Amino acid sequence: MSANTQTTAYTDESSQALSSDAAIVVNTMSKSYGSNCVVDQLSFKVQPGEVFALLGPNGAGKTTTVETLEGYRAPDTGSVRVLGLDPIREGHALKPRIGVMLQQDGLYPALTAREVLQLFAGYYAQPLSVDTLLERVGLTSAAKTRCRRLSGGQKRRLALALALVGNPELVFMDEPTAGMDPQARQVTWEIIRELKRKGVTILLTTHLMDEAERLADHVAIIDHGQLIALDTPANLTGTQNANIVRFVAPEGLDCQQLAALPSARKAEEVRAGSYLIESEAIPSLLVELTTWLRERNITLSELRVGHGSLEDLFLRLTGSEVRD
């Protein structure tokens, strides 16, 4: 199936009737700033208790979409519902039920980590234990440290705790593990899995394709404000029965010749100097590929074998590298 055919199939699926019992419903939403249309007839839904990843290159419309769902912006046309409520007109009823983990933390610099959590806990009727949250995100030892002295990774972990302190039904997470070390990243992933097991709905944005692939039940990819793919990670990659050879070499190799190798099913240059070949007979393909390269005196700088990935699909559909 070609990328264009694949995209059309997923977009058509998202255009079906959006059920009112979904945790999040975005229905033909559009939003412009002046003459710049940043969200264009966008539709998708998020079911209760699932992890939903919203992906796209910078400028794709992710931030505007999420801010609209959080009640900070109003759509020009179309509609959104979060937990059955209009985020703007019924924000007073919605806000106690959601948590928001912002990419820019905006913490009070003079307060300690515990003081900030205690402050936010006071906004909710039944907050979670401050000390328990500090321990869960690995900040017990930094509880008395003022926010301005926290490291970048510690600020991200505190932002996560702030998003959870109100015991929310739904959590928005913007780049939840950005700036975290590998250990903190694994802890955050486990917290997200725990929330899912408890029935909490999570919508996250991330530039880390492996994060979306491992955590999300469904992934939506948007670009230029439009939905271009929506499905489970496994269905999106669509290569469960095929393996992938990825290699780095001088840019501009003839992909038609690579695709014509006897064991190749498809070949493409996904970005300058980075190539991908699909095959169901990897050992044979490796012999054919190395022979082809040797005959042309082409040297590889990297060669990897594995299954198709979400990053491969992302690059095919957006034509963009995942960028910060």
Rank of each mutant, 00 (worst) to 15 (best):
residue 223 D to W: 06
residue 236 L to N: 07
residue 228 I to S: 09
residue 164 L to T: 05
residue 230 L to T: 06
residue 215 L to V: 12
residue 232 T to F: 08
residue 161 A to L: 09
residue 213 E to F: 11
residue 194 E to G: 09
residue 216 A to V: 09
residue 203 L to P: 01
residue 206 T to D: 05
residue 194 E to Q: 11
residue 202 I to N: 00
residue 172 F to Y: 13
residue 186 Q to H: 09
residue 222 I to N: 05
residue 196 K to M: 12
residue 168 P to M: 13
residue 202 I to L: 06
residue 218 H to K: 14
residue 193 R to S: 13
residue 178 A to H: 08
residue 177 T to P: 02
residue 234 A to F: 04
residue 161 A to S: 10
residue 181 D to T: 10
residue 184 A to G: 06
residue 211 E to I: 14
residue 189 W to R: 14
residue 188 T to G: 03
residue 213 E to V: 15
residue 172 F to Q: 08
residue 183 Q to V: 09
residue 230 L to K: 04
residue 235 N to P: 07
residue 165 V to C: 13
residue 220 A to L: 00
residue 220 A to I: 02
residue 203 L to R: 04
residue 162 L to C: 12
residue 200 V to H: 02
residue 218 H to P: 10
residue 171 V to D: 02
residue 180 M to E: 03
residue 206 T to Q: 04
residue 193 R to L: 15
residue 161 A to E: 03
residue 224 H to Q: 15
residue 169 E to Q: 13
residue 173 M to N: 05
residue 197 R to Y: 07
residue 192 I to Q: 00
residue 219 V to A: 08
residue 176 P to M: 07
residue 215 L to N: 05
residue 229 A to P: 07
residue 217 D to Y: 11
residue 212 A to S: 13
residue 228 I to P: 03
residue 178 A to S: 15
residue 230 L to N: 09
residue 235 N to R: 14
residue 200 V to Y: 01
residue 193 R to K: 15
residue 202 I to Q: 00
residue 164 L to Q: 07
residue 188 T to P: 00
residue 203 L to Y: 00
residue 224 H to S: 15
residue 200 V to W: 00
residue 182 P to Q: 11
residue 200 V to F: 06
residue 185 R to S: 07
residue 172 F to G: 05
residue 166 G to D: 10
